[in-house]
Design a protein around this nucleic acid. Structure first.
Length: 161
DNA sequence: GCCAACGTTGGC
DNA sequence: GCCAACGTTGGC
């Protein structure tokens, strides 16, 4: 199993919104590196759900991948901000996965909280200039984060089986 | 609102 | 293929 981080602006779609739906198509990703990460995701992978452009920014909860990558529907929608005229149904350029809420963090972890954890100093999210909206998270980083957020990593693993 | 960082576009 | 211009992201 792999771990990921997904960024979302809570004014548009936040973790509370994810809790209200059974599954959410993660569409609108228009960066090739982020897209490639989406395509690597497998059903059952867990994601840190990060609130960007928020007060405060940080990790609100965990999501689970419930459907592996398939063509992003918005790329074919004329008039959508995510429409891509150069993409064709035969050869779709953009992908999305479906995610569902998995566990809310008992303790919200702000950017400052994350920066204060020595084990996370190398984390991609915390590197200067990072703007990726989908990125991989290492096993160790994931474990440290969920525990700092007030969840027991062992319990999560057990729940997935 | 500002600005640094980064990705994409398009002229050459 | 280079690179300047432009657009977007995202923290502050």
């Amino acid at each position: 199993m792999k771990y990921w981080l997904l960024k979302s602006e809570p004014d548009v779609f936040g973790y509370p919104d994810l809790l209200r739906v059974s599954a959410e198509p993660w569409n609108g990703v228009r960066n090739y590196l982020a897209r490639n990460f989406l395509r690597q995701m497998q059903v059952g992978d867990l994601c840190l759900f990060y609130h960007s452009q928020a007060k405060p920014t940080g990790i609100a909860g965990l999501a689970k991948v419930v459907r592996a990558a398939y063509p992003d529907d918005l790329q074919f929608e004329i008039g959508s901000a995510y429409h891509d005229a150069k993409s064709t149904p035969d050869n779709p350029r953009w992908s999305m996965v479906d995610v569902a809420a998995f566990a809310e963090l008992p303790r919200f972890l702000s950017l400052d909280d994350l920066r204060a954890i020595p084990e996370l100093h190398q984390m991609r999210l915390l590197q200067k200039g990072n703007r990726l909206s989908v990125m991989p998270v290492s096993d160790d980083e994931f474990r440290v984060i969920v525990e700092a957020g007030g969840l027991a990593f062992e319990t999560l693993e057990a729940e997935l089986r």
